[in-house]
Amino acid sequence: MQRDLETKFLSDFEQNQNIAHKICRIYTTNQDAHKDLFQEITIQLWKNYSKFRGDSKFSTWMYRVALNTAISLYRKSTRAVKTQDISDVAFKIKASDYDDTEEKQLSALYNAIHQLNDIEKALIFLYLEDKPYKEISETLGISSVNARVKMNRAKEKLKNILNP
């Protein structure tokens, strides 16, 4: 029983690990911290996997657990970084077969997101991942009206950082 659960978890997680990597990139700014947060997310996912009923997609469930870990459980402060070396931000984005302008834009985007607070990061991340407002408000535990207001503010803030 435990074996089956483990095998299923490993395959579910392996396929969706990019979600966790993206969250780590948003909430951390160096390789060590990225690994640290990724490990904590993995631990939390496995610890709670038996409670995953399968009535939603694994990825949906994973967004919630991973974001909660980054926002509430991860010990190190993920406070906004004011100045950031661009090359450091792009520490793990491979340049090959990837357009140069796009690469720069992606770095700039991560750079800008790093300057937001934890909640704004979550909002922007869910927006970039195309999540509906209903899911965003349910994930964060705020009303959908409030989610919209906060989202608009976070977007404005991000725009101002990207295009001052």
């Binding site: 483990e6 978890f9 490993l10 395959s11 997680f13 392996e14 690990q17 640290d36 990724f38 490990q39 904590e40 993995t42 631990i43 939390q44 996912l45 496995w46 610890k47 870990t69 509430s72 459980l73 991860y74 010990r75």
Partner: peptide, 18 residues
């Protein structure tokens, strides 16, 4: 990218959460 073995090891390591 992590392999299933890496994930397994990680999942069974100690948490250091708040």
């Amino acid at each position: 990218k992590l392999s299933a073995v890496d994930i397994y090891k990680m999942a069974h390591s100690k948490s250091s959460s708040i």
